[in-house]
């Protein structure tokens, strides 16, 4: 969350997104912890969430590449023509 709020580089923003995904996955793992390993339900959640986040990540990096082509920079404070 800190990463999303504070970083300016678009790639770092996407990395922040991934960190949040990982933390949610970890939370599922922690919540599914049983005496003999991790609950199968939690494993399924994590596996599916990884697949979903891969799709989002691919699209996000695609947009980053497009933005770089349009603006010639990855600085989020300069890519802010849309206001209000």
């Amino acid at each position: 969350m800190y990463c999303i709020a504070s970083k300016r580089n678009l790639i770092k923003l996407v990395m922040g997104l991934e960190i949040i995904t990982t933390s949610v996955n970890l939370s599922f793992m922690g919540m599914g912890l049983r005496e003999n390993g991790v609950d199968s339900l939690a494993q399924m959640y994590v596996a599916l969430n990884m697949a979903v986040s891969a799709a989002v990540l691919a699209l996000a990096l695609g947009f980053v590449a497009l933005l770089y082509r349009h603006y010639g920079t990855l600085d989020a404070s300069k890519i802010a023509r849309l206001r209000w």
């Binding site: 969350m1 999303i4 678009l10 923003l13 997104l17 949040i20 995904t21 933390s23 949610v24 939370s27 599922f28 919540m31 959640y45 969430n49 989002v56 699209l59 996000a60 947009f63 980053v64 497009l66 933005l67 349009h70 890519i79 023509r81 849309l82």
Partner: peptide, 24 residues
């Protein structure tokens, strides 16, 4: 391109927040 990236960032964080609540 800019709008879609903004949309992606905001809504993915929103969806992940929901999922975090679901994990709790």
């Amino acid at each position: 391109a800019e709008a879609a990236f903004k949309y992606l960032l905001a809504c993915t964080v929103g969806a992940l927040t929901t999922l975090y609540a679901a994990s709790l």
